[in-house]
Structure formats: structure tokens, C-alpha cells
Computed example of a mutant assay.
Amino acid sequence: MAKLTAKQEKFIIALMQTNTVVDACKQAGITSNTGHKYLNDPDFKQEYLNVRRETMQQATNKLQQSAVLAVETLENVMVDAENSTPSARVQASRSILEYAYRSLELDDMQRRIEQLEERLGQ
């Protein structure tokens, strides 16, 4: 992959921090035409995609780190008859069951995909 220029790198950072291409161009100190030219460049597109994927991976990691606490919070609401309303307890129970079933479904689908891949590989 080709090395990006300093302006291209600055533009990628601006794209990640702003809501529009026009705003990103302004923040990066480039014209709108230059910004669109960069966005059409295959090397730039790939690097921008890499940065976006890395950002989403970091967000996913943060969510996974919080998952245990979220489940514990739901469990606490579910079992706390003294401080939780009945509707909150029911909702927490439903959430736990829903996510547990989804997890089983995903595990089952993963297992089936792996079996299919094994068959196709033979």
C-alpha cells in the first residue's frame, strides 16, 4: 500500500472527527475538490477503511468489556424485589433470556458453518 501524504492523513483524521466531507476538508485545510479526489483514490480509500475498522474494533472491545457489568446489572434488577418494580424485574428477565437465546443461536450457527466448511474442504 502506498504511503499517504501528511495532508491525506490529516484529512482522514478530520473525516473521523466531523460529520461531513465539507467540514472535514475545512478542518484539514484542503479544498472540497481535493477532498473528493482523495476519496476516489484507491490507496486513500483503503487506508480510510482501515482506520474506520480499527475505530469500530476499539468500540467493540469496549462493549465487550462492559458486557459482564451489564449482565450483572440486569441480574441485580431481576432479583431485587425490594428496590425494583415488578415491570423492571420482568424486563430484566426478558432481556437476559433474549440474549441467552441469541447467544445459543449464534453458537449453533457458528458450529453449523464450521461443519459446512469442513465438508467443502474435503
Rank of each mutant, 00 (worst) to 15 (best):
M1R: 07
M1N: 06
A2L: 02
A2Y: 00
K3R: 11
K3I: 06
K3F: 00
L4A: 02
T5P: 06
T5K: 09
A6W: 05
Q8M: 13
E9S: 05
K10D: 08
K10V: 00
I12L: 11
I12M: 11
I13D: 08
M16Y: 08
M16E: 12
M16S: 15
M16R: 13
M16P: 09
T20W: 04
V21I: 15
V21Q: 14
D23P: 03
D23V: 00
D23T: 08
A24D: 03
K26S: 06
Q27M: 15
G29K: 08
G29R: 06
I30Q: 05
S32V: 09
S32T: 05
N33V: 12
H36C: 04
H36I: 06
K37Q: 08
N40W: 00
P42S: 02
P42F: 00
P42N: 01
P42D: 02
D43K: 01
D43C: 02
F44L: 08
F44G: 03
F44N: 07
K45V: 12
Q46P: 01
Q46R: 11
E47V: 10
E47Y: 02
Y48K: 13
L49T: 14
R52K: 15
R52P: 00
R52E: 11
E54R: 14
M56E: 13
Q57N: 10
Q58F: 05
Q58G: 01
Q58W: 03
Q58V: 07
A59K: 15
N61G: 12
K62R: 14
Q64H: 09
S66G: 03
A67V: 05
A67G: 00
A67Y: 07
A67R: 09
V68L: 13
E72G: 02
E72Y: 06
E72A: 09
E72M: 12
T73V: 09
L74Y: 05
L74E: 01
E75Y: 12
N76T: 14
N76M: 12
N76L: 12
M78E: 09
V79H: 11
D80R: 04
D80K: 09
A81C: 07
E82I: 12
S84D: 03
S84M: 06
T85G: 07
P86M: 02
S87W: 01
A88W: 01
A88E: 09
R89K: 11
Q91A: 13
S93M: 10
S93V: 01
S95W: 03
I96Q: 13
I96E: 08
L97N: 05
L97D: 09
E98A: 10
E98L: 12
E98G: 00
Y99A: 03
Y99E: 03
A100E: 09
A100D: 07
Y101I: 14
S103A: 15
E105V: 14
E105L: 14
L106P: 00
D108C: 11
Q110N: 13
Q110K: 15
R111I: 07
R111Q: 15
R112Y: 08
I113A: 13
I113K: 14
I113Q: 12
I113L: 15
E114T: 15
L116T: 14
E117C: 07
E118H: 13
E118D: 10
R119E: 15
R119N: 11
R119Q: 14
L120S: 05
L120K: 10
G121F: 02
G121T: 10
